[in-house]
């Protein structure tokens, strides 16, 4: 028996979180298969076949999978799962959307967002916004698991030579249909793989003031993030949100600007290597987790930082 990884990809290449998921699969078994389901997805299939540790690529190339919906793909995953001990997907919005749907079809209690593998039945996962770590042992015959990408080293996207097997699609679900996708266009790195992140909070004060953060980020090649408070205030889109209800990040350097440090935000950044906080309130909780804290008016400190870097 082997492990199946559900690839998140853009038809051209595997997304970085898929490589982390393969990294987790490696701890379970040496025989790792990957499902690449998409439309005109040959490039993604080829890159999957070259990925280290992959022994077989299951390819579904079908027009109705150009935009994957849970209703389309979950029945495919549920059928395939019967041949595997574990089915893993990244704990991204992609994996979170589809895998529980497949788990219910299989009558399996999914294990969400694992951060460590103890043995083939036992896993650690953060709960209560990461303020507690639960070690859970599954009694289901097939384990369906989403993987917290920052907790696992990625597999290399070269060195593999896997066999590719075509499998049929199940056709189009009549339940839902794709209407539109508005992608956030940015030259900056993705939050979940960035080495440096500059994040702003409610202290930034307005959407236009976020330009301060963006200028600094552009200068040093950083990704831009935000606290939930900044997102709620409408300063910046939700996909920039870092924290329990947004993205979990672990860059080498995290610079929190005008962020007070609510528990739910700290959860999302606590695995960063170095945390810097710039805030005018010296009692802000963010300073309790910051390696370097600067009590200053961000409207002075941020432009100065940008000039001097």
């Amino acid at each position: 028996m082997s492990v199946l990884v559900i690839a998140e990809h853009n038809n051209k290449r595997l997304k970085a979180v898929t490589l982390n998921t393969i990294g987790a699969a490696k701890q379970l078994d040496n025989d790792i298969h990957i499902l690449v389901a998409g439309s005109s997805c040959n490039s993604a299939v080829e890159s999957a076949a070259k990925t280290e540790n992959i022994t077989k690529v299951l390819k579904i190339n079908s027009k109705e999978l150009s935009h994957v919906t849970a209703e389309n793909i979950a029945p495919i995953i549920a059928d395939l799962a019967k041949n595997y001990t574990h089915v893993l997907a990244p704990a991204s919005t992609f994996g979170k959307n589809i895998l529980p749907h497949a788990a219910a079809l299989l009558d399996v209690q999914q294990i969400s967002d694992i951060s460590a593998i103890i043995d083939n039945d036992t896993f650690e996962r953060p709960v209560y916004a990461g303020n507690a770590i639960a070690t859970v042992k599954s009694s289901d015959d097939i384990k369906l698991i989403t993987v917290r990408s920052i907790a696992f080293e990625p597999s290399s996207n070269e060195g593999g030579n896997a066999h590719i097997e075509n499998i049929p699609s199940k056709g189009k679900s009549k339940l839902s249909s794709f209407v539109a996708l508005r992608e956030t266009i940015s030259d900056r790195p993705e939050l979940t793989s960035a080495k440096i992140i500059i994040a702003g909070g409610r202290g930034i004060g307005s959407a236009s003031n976020f330009a301060l953060i963006e200028k600094l980020a552009n200068k040093i090649g950083a990704a831009v993030g935000a606290s939930r408070a900044a997102v709620d205030a409408g300063y910046i889109p939700n996909d920039c949100q870092i924290g329990q209800t947004g993205k979990i990040v672990a860059p080498d350097l995290y610079i929190a600007i005008g962020i007070s440090g609510a528990i739910q935000h700290l959860t999302g950044i606590k695995d960063s290597k170095i945390i810097v906080a710039i805030n005018n309130d010296e009692n802000a909780p963010i300073f309790q987790v910051a390696d370097y804290g600067l009590v200053a008016d961000l409207f002075d400190a941020v432009p100065e930082l940008e000039n001097k870097l």
Partner: peptide, 15 residues
């Protein structure tokens, strides 16, 4: 709300 943007779907009722 998805990673990297927003996706719009049309769902048939019930949903």
């Amino acid at each position: 709300e998805i990673d990297g943007g927003r996706e719009t779907l049309k769902l048939k009722m019930p949903a």
